[in-house]
Design a protein around this nucleic acid. Structure first.
Length: 306
DNA sequence: GCGTCCAGGTCTACC
DNA sequence: GGTAGACCTGGACGC
């Protein structure tokens, strides 16, 4: 089944898909040549579908086409459209951000590429779990942990076309029903296991409502403290999660960011984080996004050849 | 093939 | 408030 979704005029699908590493983590998959993003969607009706998102070829080119693996009723169609809009940040306003970028010649490229929309998951829970899985390890290990979570705890889906088994991202109940030992040994989460277990159990017991973070109208500092209250989520993870929640006041500096900043701005010479913070402070409430644009600029120019 | 070392954020205990 | 050490894994490296 094919669905059509309108997008803002400055929206760029490729820039959004490859805005960071999420597109490489299950249950996302992507096709760089065809410029499409595919993921399993676990609908509230209980139906599981595969949805491929790609550009709709029209004269105005301001729409997306979503190809689903099976027909959907009107309620399900509405849910799929809403999830796609949420993941691709289609309802978030970037006019002010692009206006700010247009004041700085080193960022002229940002509005031209329609960059700045950071891909996010179906749920905040999925984003938080994945973010914990990025901490203190290589990207390869992050991929292993997320793959194990999906394949060992996610709901199964069989595509009628390929017959290949695919797996959803597990819900909090699925993780809460396991043990620390299982998460350590089977998921390879290591010391992160108790953090994942505690978060999932708190959600199941309704002690914490992290899905509300996407719509909460509270100051960023307050939201940051709420995010930090999740064990295993430190300053780096919380700062990055805030970006996925639409707040860009925090930089979220990790070792990769430091390395890239030193290469780009200090000829490889190391400095303290205070120097990095001072550099991006000029961008005010957008500083976290300007940092990310600045340090990933080469992706757009070379690696992904946008 | 095996052992050792290192990188990668966060938590906790301690000062 | 700042700091040191532990946590765990995969990968690099030397033997």
């Amino acid at each position: 089944m094919k669905l059509s979704i309108s997008v803002p005029s400055e929206f760029n699908l490729k820039s959004t898909i490859f805005s960071h590493g999420w597109c490489e983590l299950l249950p996302f998959s992507n096709d760089r040549d065809d410029v499409s993003l595919t993921r399993l969607i676990d609908l509230s009706s209980g139906k599981i579908i595969s949805a491929q998102i790609k550009e709709q070829r029209t004269k105005s080119n301001n729409a997306l086409q979503v190809v689903t693996s099976s027909p959907l009723n009107s309620t399900e169609q509405k849910e799929v459209k809403s999830l796609v809009r949420t993941s691709l940040r289609l309802d978030e306003h970037f006019t002010e951000f692009y206006a700010e970028a247009s004041k700085h010649k080193e960022f002229f490229w940002v509005p031209a590429f329609g960059a700045g929309r950071l891909l996010r998951s179906q749920t905040v829970f999925e984003d938080v779990v994945k973010m914990i899985c990025t901490t203190n390890c290589s990207w390869a290990l992050t991929e292993i942990m997320v793959e194990n979570l999906c394949k060992k705890l996610g709901k199964k889906f069989s595509d009628s076309n390929s017959n290949a088994l695919q797996y959803c991202f597990p819900d909090p109940e699925a993780i809460a029903g396991t043990s620390e030992k299982f998460l350590r040994k089977e998921i390879r989460a290591g010391y992160r296991a108790p953090y994942l277990l505690e978060l999932s159990k708190r959600i199941v017991k309704k002690e914490i409502d992290i899905e509300a973070w996407r719509t909460l109208q509270i100051p960023t500092d307050e939201l940051f403290q709420q995010v930090r209250s999740v064990k295993g989520v430190g300053p780096y993870a919380a700062g990055n999660l805030l970006k996925l929640l639409g707040h860009y006041d925090y930089l979220a500096i990790d070792s990769w960011c430091r390395k890239k900043f030193f290469e780009k701005h200090k000829n490889g010479r190391t400095t303290s984080d205070k120097v990095i913070e001072k550099y991006y402070r000029q961008f005010g409430k957008w500083q976290g996004l300007f940092l990310w644009m600045d340090l990933t600029q080469y992706w757009y120019e070379k690696e992904f050849a946008f």
